[in-house]
Design a protein around this nucleic acid. Structure first.
Lengths: 285, 285
DNA sequence: TTATTTACGTTATTTTCTTACATAATATAA
DNA sequence: TTATATTATGTAAGAAAATAACGTAAATAA
């Protein structure tokens, strides 16, 4: 609705504009792309107004002047075009569906990057630092995310495990106590089994961190929730990108964790890294 | 093809530039956003070169002049990719390391998006379509990727499994035959055990698809290799992004697969999707 | 109506960009 | 090596673009 797209802003403002401003707006809206590369004189002539009128028009829309306006207009056009262009069609071929899938993933990441609450991230890092042990829970696709998380966090010299089996989860939840952190990953946040398990762990005084969608039942009953608001994929052909976002958020948390531990901890990480060297073929042969 | 990002184009061209052009490039790359809104005089001063040098720089990159260059630069910046200093420093806090990690992931995705060979992607989809069964192999972090791949590909009504156990891999490889596809995921492509396993499968006439780095031993001995050239993470604090890229490439392959199967196949996917509904809490309560 | 505000254009000025040309640096051939 | 060609870069002029200052016209309110 209230997108920051300049074209939409102009369209919305159209009824409130005066004569010459309206003329300018019409010319711009008729061919915004041309407007971005034309001079103030050209545009003024096209709209049959004076150059300062065009300039005033620009300032009206929070630009410092005509060049600044063109810049903002150009930016609006790019994001708009990409957005429209992002769905995979049945008749797409490799050259078209490949960049589309990359673009939609990139777009979702950029969205979350700008929306994610740094305060919440910080609190989650706090809780992880305080944890005596961490369990990563996830079912289906989120199971892979949980597995990846284990692979990241075991490096911190801390009892860490991942689980994708509801019975196992249930048992662990029932033995959970203060100091245990259950890190629960779920795209929907509405899986009954998961909710059950979290409830049990909660009752035992464990900390629950949720990585899920905002407003979900899981988010509601967790100690703290990292909200990821990635639109549901309505398109049949389009893969789910939320798990990618989840992985990147876990990267962020792991980084926060490492930083909090301080530089004395780096040699430990280095040791783990080097432990894999003997399993690899040498580069020079 | 996909229009390459101007920033990447400049970065790539950097080694071939002459003195003053290099100066200009460095100033632009240091803060591209500032460059889009500064005058040619300001930029020339910052780079300690003359104004015409800046102008010539712009023309070198297929712009008609400085304003046109700024426009193109601005457009490049919109695509969600930010080019700030992307390294995490020990004294970074949440508000700085969070966007950095997102940005570096986004940047790597954009790079691969523009570099990946559509021909190879297409051939890999061909091979997957022809497969009688698919094994996804991966160790460590790549194990999670393999697990995710299984979760995607089992939907295609095809015997699919993932394995992160070298003994299991070895046994499966030894029984592999024509029609079997071994999809091997490895960031380095130099893990001895994996190379061994692939050799065995190869000798049995199976098809080996590698998702690994170009020029690696694994790429060399595979039937076909999807090259992912993501720079090694030299920074201690920066997480590995290659696995994210791998996941997106698997998304691309799954999409290619779905499209190749045609629209008759969609109801089957829908059925799988709906099978999960009973496990979820209703939205309205 | 007249006073007042607002809208708009003309002209002048400033800023920005580009062209033409000259000089310096570098590479190449003798 | 030196002479010559080539390329790189800067200076200065001028063209183009954008803005500011000002004045007149139109609209509105009293």
């Amino acid at each position: 609705m209230h997108s920051q797209n300049l074209i939409n802003i102009i369209t919305d403002a159209l009824p409130g504009l005066n004569k010459s401003e309206t003329k300018v707006a019409q010319v711009i809206l008729a061919d915004p792309d041309a407007a971005t590369s034309s001079s103030i004189a050209t545009l003024a002539k096209k709209a049959s107004v004076s150059e300062p009128s065009v300039n005033r028009f620009c300032k009206r829309f929070n630009a410092t002047g005509f060049p600044d306006f063109k810049l903002k207009l150009a930016k609006s056009l790019v994001s708009g075009i990409r957005f429209v262009n992002r769905n995979v069609n049945p008749d797409d071929d490799v050259t078209s569906y490949t960049p589309k899938i990359f673009d939609s993933t990139i777009n979702d990441l950029a969205l979350v990057r700008d929306k994610i609450s740094h305060t919440v991230v910080n609190s989650v890092v706090d809780k992880l630092i305080q944890a005596k042990r961490i369990y990563f829970f996830g079912l289906g696709t989120s199971g892979s995310v949980a597995r990846d998380a284990e692979n990241k966090f075991f490096r911190f010299n801390l009892p860490v495990s991942y689980h994708d089996d509801v019975l196992m989860m249930r048992m662990l939840a029932s033995t959970g106590t203060t100091g245990d952190v259950f890190f629960v990953i779920s795209h929907t946040g509405r899986t009954k089994e998961i909710i059950d398990v979290v409830q049990i762990a909660r009752e035992n005084g464990a900390t629950i961190i949720a990585l899920t969608s905002p407003g979900s039942p899981l988010a509601a009953i967790s100690s703290i929730s990292l909200d990821v608001d990635v639109p549901e994929n309505t398109d049949e052909y389009m893969p789910m990108t939320s798990r990618i976002v989840h992985l990147v958020i876990l990267d962020v948390l792991a980084t926060g964790f490492t930083l909090r531990r301080g530089p004395d901890f780096l040699p430990h990480l280095e040791k783990i890294k080097n432990s894999l060297l003997p399993t690899r073929l040498k580069k020079d042969n």
